[in-house]
């Protein structure tokens, strides 16, 4: 049983579509303010469900970070979080993300996995409310942080952790079992290239059009900001990892998060901790440091566009993509 905790967000939306079109047992989406504030984010989440032709519940959660002033990322994702498409949807999200998370775990101890692709505000609030229940999670998979690579909000901080560093810190301090983190160290290589976008457009159809449209702003931003041609799609990588664990390789580590000063939002990650320090700095997560990019894109395209598998493989073989 999987709950996707999201802030859609262009790459979140792609991740939702990927998850819902896969065989994963996704039971609900919970939303927090992140890339875009929670109300618009919920609309975007519902849109993604509609595109995947799945009707699953969407719950609204935190409207802002625990303490830090909220900063969205409209500059990256567009004024509505989806390149300004302002989609209309057929239903409304419910309130009560935190309670939903806790009740679901209580009813299904050690069976629920949360895949957290936005700020960790919802997860932290759930921990604050009922740590014991949260310890009965099967697994927590997080997109966030950066261990040995440049940040995207400062030289050292990644957006999800940076936007709510206190929440991130609380989540790691809770010492939950089976926490896996995939940060910029592995996502920087997941570049959705212009050729891929064009291929998707050529596939045709409603879903292809949607994927093509919502990534437009992201591509423009990447070009303007860092002269990258294409856009990095962080969040689908986690879903692909849920589908096939061999996509990412993770290593035991202790993670703590800086909550003030010039390094605010930085994930401080220690690997290979000497035994003497383990009581003080226990392994509280696994950090992904290696990624199989080809495998990711295979999963991504073949799951979202199963009717175009042959086209995708042909494009790959001809060297247009990857």
């Amino acid at each position: 049983m999987i709950i996707l905790d999201v802030d859609p967000g262009i790459d979140d939306s792609l991740a939702i579509v990927l998850a819902l079109k896969s065989k994963l047992d996704v039971i609900a989406l919970t939303v927090s303010s992140g890339n875009i504030e929670v109300n618009q984010g919920s609309i975007n989440a519902i849109k993604a469900c509609e595109m995947a032709k799945k009707d699953i519940p969407v719950y609204k959660g935190a409207t802002k970070p625990l303490f830090k002033e909220y900063v969205d990322s409209q500059d990256t994702h567009g004024s509505d979080g989806l390149s300004g498409m302002y989609y209309k949807v057929k239903k409304e999200a419910m309130d009560g993300a935190i309670d939903f998370i806790l009740e679901t775990i209580k009813a299904n101890p050690y069976q629920v996995t949360i895949v957290a692709m936005g700020p960790l505000t919802n997860v932290a609030l759930a921990i604050q409310k009922d740590l014991e229940t949260m310890k009965q999670l099967k697994e927590l998979v997080i997109m966030g942080g950066a261990a040995k690579i440049h940040g995207n909000c400062s030289p050292v901080a990644e957006y999800n952790f940076w936007v709510d560093p206190d929440a991130a810190k609380q989540v790691f301090e809770a010492n939950l079992p089976n926490v896996t983190v995939a940060g910029l160290d592995v996502t920087y290589d997941i570049l959705f290239s212009p050729n891929m976008r064009e291929m998707v457009r050529q596939f045709g159809g409603e879903l292809a059009e949607y994927v093509h449209n919502i990534t437009q702003f992201y591509v423009d931003f990447h070009w303007a900001q860092e002269r990258t041609l294409g856009c990095i799609i962080n969040d689908p990588l986690l879903v692909a990892y849920m589908i096939d664990r061999s996509v990412l390789e993770a290593f035991d580590c202790h993670i703590d998060v800086e909550t003030s000063g010039i390094c605010i939002g930085e994930s401080v990650v220690a690997f290979d901790i000497p035994e003497a320090y383990l009581p003080l700095y226990p392994y509280n997560a696994k950090m992904c440091m290696k990624v199989d990019k080809t495998k990711f894109f295979d999963i991504f395209f073949e799951t979202i566009f199963p009717e175009h598998i042959e086209d995708y493989r042909l494009m790959k073989k001809r060297g247009y993509i990857l």
Partner: peptide, 21 residues
């Protein structure tokens, strides 16, 4: 370059290699 003087990152050098600041 900035230097962190507080918290768990004390002593860290924050170097803006890509000149985003």
């Amino acid at each position: 370059l900035e230097v962190s003087t507080t918290g768990i990152t004390i002593g860290q050098t924050v170097v803006d290699i890509v000149d985003s600041w």
